[in-house]
Amino acid sequence: MVNIIWAAMAITGIVYAMFNGTMDKVNEALFESAEEAVTLSIGLISILVFWLGMMKVAEKAGILTFLSKLFRPIIIRLFPDIPKDHPAIGYILSNITANIFGLGNAATPMGIKAMEQMKELSGSDKASRSMITFLALNTSSLTIIPTTVISIRMQYDSVSPTEIVGTTIIATLISSVSALLIDRFFYYRSLRRK
């Protein structure tokens, strides 16, 4: 559906430019945007490779293991219908750890694997309680180091690209807590209806 909306907006803009006589400006903007997108992507790749390397160093240093042990009791309480030693717990922990470091691209494959494991565990095509909780938690994603945003700010020559770290921590902490509270509210509300 989103693809259809974007296509309709693009076609409407092009048709309007044809009738308005500004097709040359549309072509100019199109090529400038394409060049800027490629430049931004290449810049982002270098920053993401750096942070993925840092994540590998953190893994070798045992920081990720420490974070996994730190978050494990919380995750087990948040997902009580998943057995403690099930692979889904490991994928959930990896996803949350990657999101904490602002590596959404690295977190996505782990999130998909966690969802697959939870779907297999529930044995149903409907979203289970754990799947809904994980989706809410993953969408709000607590972030300590917003790597991608910092790299975009660096690409556009921000005077202080890291000044958003404190704000990001506060905003994502509030969004994560809110997501969990809303998730639990609707879960317990649905239990009362039954």
Rank of each mutant, 00 (worst) to 15 (best):
M54H: 07
D85P: 05
G62S: 12
S41T: 08
L103R: 05
D125G: 14
S141A: 06
T139S: 11
A8F: 14
Y187A: 12
Y91M: 02
F134Y: 10
N20Q: 13
A8I: 14
I152K: 09
E36S: 10
K25L: 10
T97W: 00
M55Y: 15
L70N: 03
I45N: 11
M110F: 15
R189Q: 13
I76P: 03
L78M: 13
A107K: 01
L78E: 02
Y187C: 12
E116I: 09
I76F: 04
E36R: 15
I164H: 00
N138K: 09
A171V: 09
S41E: 08
E120Q: 11
I5M: 10
M18K: 12
L93P: 00
I170A: 07
S68Q: 03
Q117D: 09
P83N: 03
I100Q: 00
I164Y: 08
I182L: 13
L180P: 02
R192L: 14
E120L: 13
L180V: 05
G102R: 05
I96V: 03
G53H: 09
T139Q: 11
F50Q: 03
N95D: 09
E59W: 11
S158R: 04
A34S: 09
K25V: 07
S140V: 09
R193N: 15
M131I: 12
F50P: 00
V49Q: 08
M54R: 01
K84M: 04
T12Y: 15
T143S: 03
V177T: 08
T65A: 10
T39A: 11
L30M: 13
S124K: 14
A8T: 12
L121E: 10
A171I: 13
I150R: 00
F79I: 02
G21L: 15
I100P: 00
R184N: 09
I169Q: 01
W6M: 06
L30D: 07
L48C: 10
F71A: 03
G43E: 07
S151V: 07
P146E: 06
W6D: 01
L173R: 06
T39C: 03
S190E: 10
P109Q: 07
A136Y: 14
S190F: 08
L52E: 12
I14C: 01
L52P: 01
M9F: 15
R193I: 04
I5F: 12
Q155F: 04
T147Q: 05
L181E: 04
L173W: 04
I152T: 11
I182M: 15
A179I: 11
S190K: 13
L67I: 07
I170D: 04
Y156C: 00
D85C: 00
L64G: 02
